[in-house]
């Protein structure tokens, strides 16, 4: 069997990649894709521990995480479309209306 530390390292790598993507990308769609990366990293963790501890709760929680991810994508993409309609760009550096 594969040790659980391998899964933890893998999901750590994926989560850090998503975090870096949120921080360095300027395209707002790429930022949402990076958020998806982070959600998937946590899903890998949940399922790995669910298999390790022989508890189905982890898999059920991944189910709920999927639901929340779908809701997040729907609302986030609607916000992006509204932003694009008002500013005609999807570069986050152009959105400085709330900047202090």
């Amino acid at each position: 069997m594969i040790p659980i530390s391998y899964y933890l390292i893998l999901s750590g790598i994926v989560f850090l990649t998503g975090l870096v993507g949120v921080l360095i990308r300027r395209n707002i769609i790429a930022i949402l894709l990076s958020v998806e990366l982070m959600l998937n990293a946590t899903n890998i963790n949940f399922v790995a521990f669910s298999d390790h501890l022989q508890d189905l709760g982890g898999q059920v929680f991944v189910f709920f995480a999927l639901t929340v991810a779908a809701a997040e994508v729907a609302v986030g993409l609607a916000i992006i479309i509204a932003l694009h309609r008002s500013r005609s760009t999807i570069n986050v550096e152009e959105f400085n209306l709330l900047k202090w």
């Binding site: 639901t67 779908a70 729907a74 609302v75 993409l77 609607a78």
Partner: peptide, 17 residues
């Protein structure tokens, strides 16, 4: 509750877009 989350997200997306 998850079904409610999906409903709210659907309404929100329609209103926003």
């Amino acid at each position: 509750v998850a079904s409610l989350v999906l409903l709210v997200a659907m309404i929100g997306a329609i209103v926003l877009a």
